[in-house]
């Protein structure tokens, strides 16, 4: 039997909003320690990995490892019925389940809703994500990053990210013209979510498709800050922490000049 009870249903709502426009169907791997979701967009350009450890749950029981093939649109419809402060319980049999139950309990306990969603067969390959030493880590406000990606999308379909010791520059150009946004490394980190910290081993200069970055920033409500990890020749990692009990990581390869 797999059963997981989340005190804050709003978190699951935000997680679905973070992945459903990028990955239609995803494999939710549940084991004794955590729920892990990994999926790619339909064109296999980007990858998202979500991890939510058992400690995030009020109650977590997973007698045998079970993989739930979830259609994220169906799951999102159910979660649209949930309030942020509802308790959400996920339940599934652990012998090749063909469905998953979701129970929503209102905070005052007067309303209980239960849904059964059919699981989908997904035969995507699970990819191994190698541990990588990155040349640069940029930690910044998630809202700021979302705003930069949105604003620069008006100038071009790609953003060039250049990191130096002092700052990180986002540039885009197209027929509208050229736009540069430069964030200076904050000297003092007083308010974490408003500062920009650049941890640089060596300078990087990479170009990424804004269409995907704007899909990644759907996770902005999950965390006040976002961390970008960059290396020449390696996919960009855009990471949003889920409190202390997990993360959502998006991976996107840099564009290469023909």
């Amino acid at each position: 039997m797999f059963e997981a009870k989340l005190q804050q249903g709003g978190l699951l709502k935000k997680i679905l909003e973070s992945v459903k426009d990028l990955v239609v169907d995803g494999l939710w791997d549940c084991d004794g320690a955590a729920i892990t979701l990994q999926g790619m967009d339909s064109s296999h350009v980007a990858l998202v990995e979500m991890l939510l450890r058992a400690e995030a749950f009020e109650h977590y029981r997973c007698d045998r490892n079970v993989t739930l093939g979830m259609n994220h649109n169906h799951l999102s419809k159910i979660l649209k019925c949930a309030n942020n402060d509802d308790i959400v319980i996920l339940k599934a049999a652990d012998q090749n389940p063909d469905s998953c139950s979701l129970i929503l309990e209102s905070k005052n306990g007067e309303k209980t809703s239960d849904f059964v969603v059919s699981l989908v067969r997904i035969d995507t390959d699970q990819l191994g994500i190698p541990e990588t030493e990155y040349s640069a880590h940029v930690k910044m406000s998630s809202g700021e990053f979302q705003r930069i990606c949105r604003d620069l999308s008006q100038f071009g379909d790609a953003v060039q990210i250049t990191c130096s010791k002092q700052d990180v520059k986002f540039s885009s150009s197209g027929e509208t013209g050229k736009a540069n946004i430069t964030l200076t490394h904050s000297a003092t980190v007083d308010k974490e979510e408003e500062s920009v910290t650049v941890d640089l081993k060596e300078p990087v200069d990479l170009t990424f498709a804004l269409r995907f970055l704007n899909l990644f920033t759907k996770a902005t409500p999950i965390s006040d800050t976002v961390t970008l990890s960059l290396s020449q020749e390696a996919p960009l990692v855009v990471e949003y922490k889920i409190g202390d009990s997990g993360h959502i990581r998006y991976f996107l390869a840099p564009k290469i000049q023909e």
Binding site: M40, S43, H44, V45, A46, L47, D125, Q126, L127, G128, I129, P130, A158, T207, A209, A234, P235, F251, L252, A253, P254, K255, I256, Q257, E258
Partner: peptide
């Protein structure tokens, strides 16, 4: 026009 590689060029099947 710059090319967009697939993520599968970088991560192997587990």
């Amino acid at each position: 026009k710059p090319k967009q590689p697939s993520i599968m060029n970088f991560f192997t099947k587990a």
